[in-house]
Amino acid sequence: MKDFEKNVFVNCPFDQEYRPLLHVLIFTLLYLGFRPRLALERSDSGESRLHKIVELIHESKFGIHDLSRCQAHEKDELFRLNMPLELGIDMGCKYFPGKRWKTKRLLVLETERYRYQAAISDLSGCDIKAHQNDADLLIKAVRDWLVQEASLNQAPPVSEMSSAFQDFYGSEYDRLRHSGWTEQEIAHLPTDELKRNMMTWMASR
């Protein structure tokens, strides 16, 4: 299976509030030499979303699942169940027969440290990292997890990756603004396009 060892399935909120953290997450994975795989990367309307997700999980040794939206913000707002569902599919793979599935590694993220326990008590006892909606804490959680689970040698420190992300984000914002993009257009730049721009920026350094 092509790139199985480098593919990281990213299961996280795709809303505007989470968007900068999604960009931090993608940037961190690329910076460390991994391939972030997201349901957003393909937009074939004829393909069912669940089929697409199962395929991404199938192709990825690593999975990052952010359960930050396990709590509704407003009265009568339904909390989102897609992320726990996708975590369940990825987690279930580890129990399938076959050596490949036993090598799968998962990182579960949350905004707050113990909030998930009330929502998904079956995860009690699992190691869950809290990022507090902070870019540096998110970079640290992903970096440290990959150093351990992917046996990364000489991974750069958080400060280096954090600085590089700020520099990229700033130069990208400046470039788009001076190319005539509106704030609204920048805010809705397709994630896959931004991912390609990150790769171009990293290659040019």
Binding site: V24, A135, G170, Y173, D174, R177
Partner: peptide, 15 residues
């Protein structure tokens, strides 16, 4: 020069 002001989640608040 330029000054980028970031929020904790990395978002650019102002330039």
């Amino acid at each position: 020069g330029k000054l980028f002001v970031h929020q904790r989640n990395g978002r650019i608040e102002s330039l």
